[in-house]
Design a protein around this nucleic acid. Structure first.
Lengths: 404, 404
DNA sequence: TTGACTTACTAAAGAGTCTTAATGAAGAAT
DNA sequence: ATTCTTCATTAAGACTCTTTAGTAAGTCAA
């Protein structure tokens, strides 16, 4: 997976480093494995009981863990059960798409407390920011959560978020969303720390964490919907490249069987213009298909055997084969998960796919369909938001109390 | 560059971990910065003098560092100078290509002690393995180094080395080289530990370590010669994918302006068949160019203004633009270095390149030509071999002496 | 040559971390 | 009630690093 080149040994360290390493390790273990007694933890992490005891006492002092009853399974003295304090933070995750806003509210463990889906009816980014807030408020309200209890928000957005001028670029489907200082606007309107990240990257994280890509490394999630893109997960982290544009394969300069023309759709990207949802509809129409205004319809008709729809799907398969071969050639992932409005139809798209792949190259990508469906990006946003919030809260608590 | 997703805190650790961390850190510092006095090291690495003293005494005991005279620059008492012991290991690096074998011999610091270039006249892999040994022997012999003093060999090979059946695949240019148990054959013939890795990946490491890509992250080296491929360097390590095939872009399913035909060169790869050295010659011939049997010749004639040669180069530029856009869309590297027999002609290929890139997408890859030329792969192999040897020697020494 | 100054080295004491081992506490089994 | 089992706590020991203070070995200037 890597050719390591020496280097990168950890920096020089004092004894106190051990404490913080182990503290972090035990906390993460609790997040991942749920409540446990101290002897259990001691055995699991390989540290002696006194060390585990002292560390947990520390974490309890700063409010990151708490006790919850006693174990009753043993023959001997009952053990105290420790668990992470889920109330230490609450996360709102929002997937902002051209057609829908999807919200999930979760605690620090990742348990979904509320869920909502709202049509995107906004006409300007200002009202879209407002819609985000309303969506969070209504979702949390229904679940009986105070809006003020929410500590962090994470936004899944198309395009690339640029830190330097705090705006989103390459989000051709949400033109007004691209204006400068979007981050400040969101933060001030929502009244809490906000994280903005690419929707496909977060979807990749979702599918990697709880979907078809669990434990796979390296992993690629291919999204084909109103836009197209891939998310690349390497060693459990999303690779974003130098400027955050890694995986923006809408810009790939090929359009399937047809040769490139001189006038290309530079802004949306050549492949996106040829391959995303709208182009399926357009292509099917050019072949004489009538009454299909959305890609979903085209696929429906193809299932029924309508010739021009079938032909349009076949063209999609052709392009998909080329794309999958490209992904393999560049990234050689262990698995590619295909999702998104178009991608979900892998049953149809997959007809003849294997043969075509085999024809194109000796590479053998493993491909499966997404299992999380339309929620994949929000789910990934939750995963990511939980990590961000944990990090922030850990840092804050550690700085606040034992520093004194 | 990454969206980290929590996790991956270091495992639980005992105090002795600090010792080994600092030991490794100081040794690596010495490898990287050269000889230094103990007070200098202490200031540089941020550890107290007693700690540095003790650590160096340890490293000296196991023969990894040694003293070399005294510092004379100070007003006070002269300090002992410590340096890594370069004789602790010697590395032979061999770039095995279709036409040439290139050898470099280096010490553990990376100083080149010998260099040789031999035409590849082998007809079978057996004699090619023999040639590798002869090349190493003659290179080291000329420099007065005993063959037996060499402790590690690293082979830069086209294709992908598969650990499981210890053979190389995808090396269409060296058909006999692909046979099973190549590794054992090499190890037994050479009589020392051998490492086999992809030539382009090593070239990327070379260009990243000592060429145009120094300090760049992420970094892509694009090789265009008898074969084509990219090496991807992320955080100083080469990314190789799940099976080692990452960057095998010869298999990309596009062939430039022309549409794909149904009969594609599946084994060599579609892009490789359209874009690598041989195809330039063939294409130029089809345009009526005479007397050009090699790609070098075609480029020479293009420089002189011969029309069909110029046209062939122009086609290369066209394909290159599409390829660079693809690399950006997938990987978004900070810099792409172009090398190899064809790639070195970036002055010619670059004509009109920027315009075409701009036409294809809004992505803006930074591109420069390789500075290491034909030696890039051997140089990378040396870098890598040094790292491998250091690792092995450190592990061996640590296990041997203080374990008692 | 001598004394002041500068820097390198060494040794001892102190603080932080972990572990092992011994002891006490709380429940189940007999 | 006694014994067994497991959890919890405490004390002692080992390892690491740092700080501090003292000694050694040079340069520089009078």
């Amino acid at each position: 997976m890597w050719i390591r080149n020496g280097g990168a040994s950890a920096p020089a360290a004092a004894p106190s480093l051990l404490r913080s390493m182990n503290q972090r390790f035990i906390l993460d273990w609790l997040y991942q494995n749920g409540p446990a007694t101290r002897p259990q933890i001691s055995r699991a992490v390989g540290l002696s009981q006194p060390t585990v005891f002292a560390t947990l006492a520390n974490l309890e002092d700063v409010g990151l863990v708490r006790t919850r009853g006693q174990s009753e399974e043993s023959n001997g003295r009952p053990a105290l059960i420790y668990e992470v304090d889920p109330g230490a933070g609450t996360i709102a995750a929002v997937d902002v798409g051209r057609d829908w806003l999807r919200v999930m509210v979760s605690d620090l463990v990742g348990t979904i407390l509320a869920r909502a889906e709202v049509r995107n009816t906004a006409r300007s980014s200002k009202s879209l920011v407002g819609m985000v807030k309303e969506a969070i408020a209504s979702a949390s309200g229904e679940a009986g959560i105070e809006y003020t209890a929410i500590t962090h928000t994470i936004i899944a957005s198309p395009g690339v978020y640029q830190e330097q001028d705090s705006r989103v670029i390459y989000a051709a489907q949400l033109p007004e969303w691209q204006r400068p200082r979007l981050y400040e606007e969101l933060r001030d309107t929502l009244g809490m720390p906000v994280t903005i990240e690419n929707d496909v990257n977060l979807a990749a994280l979702g599918e990697h964490g709880e979907g078809a890509g669990r434990g796979v490394n390296p992993f690629v999630y291919l999204h084909i919907g109103t836009g197209i893109g891939i998310g690349i997960v390497i060693d459990g982290k999303v690779y974003t490249g130098a400027t955050g544009a890694a995986g923006e394969i809408g810009f790939l300069p090929f359009a399937g069987p047809e040769p490139l023309t001189d006038t290309v759709d530079r802004e949306h990207g050549i492949l996106e213009a040829a391959f995303a949802a709208d182009s399926v509809v357009e292509y099917a129409r050019r072949l004489g298909l009538e009454g299909a205004t959305t890609a979903v319809k085209v696929f429906e008709l193809a299932r029924k055997g309508v010739a021009p729809a079938k032909k349009a799907v076949q063209r999609q398969t052709e392009i998909l084969a080329a794309l999958l071969t490209s992904i393999s050639a560049f990234l050689d992932p262990e698995l590619i998960v295909v999702g998104g409005g178009i991608g979900q139809n892998l049953d149809l798209l997959g007809v003849g796919l294997a043969d075509r792949l085999n024809q194109l190259s000796p590479l053998r990508p493993r491909i499966v369909a997404s299992v999380l469906g339309v929620d994949v990006a929000v789910r990934g946003a939750v995963t990511r938001g939980v990590a961000v919030a944990r990090e922030a809260i850990f840092a804050e608590r550690m700085a606040r109390i034992p520093g004194a």
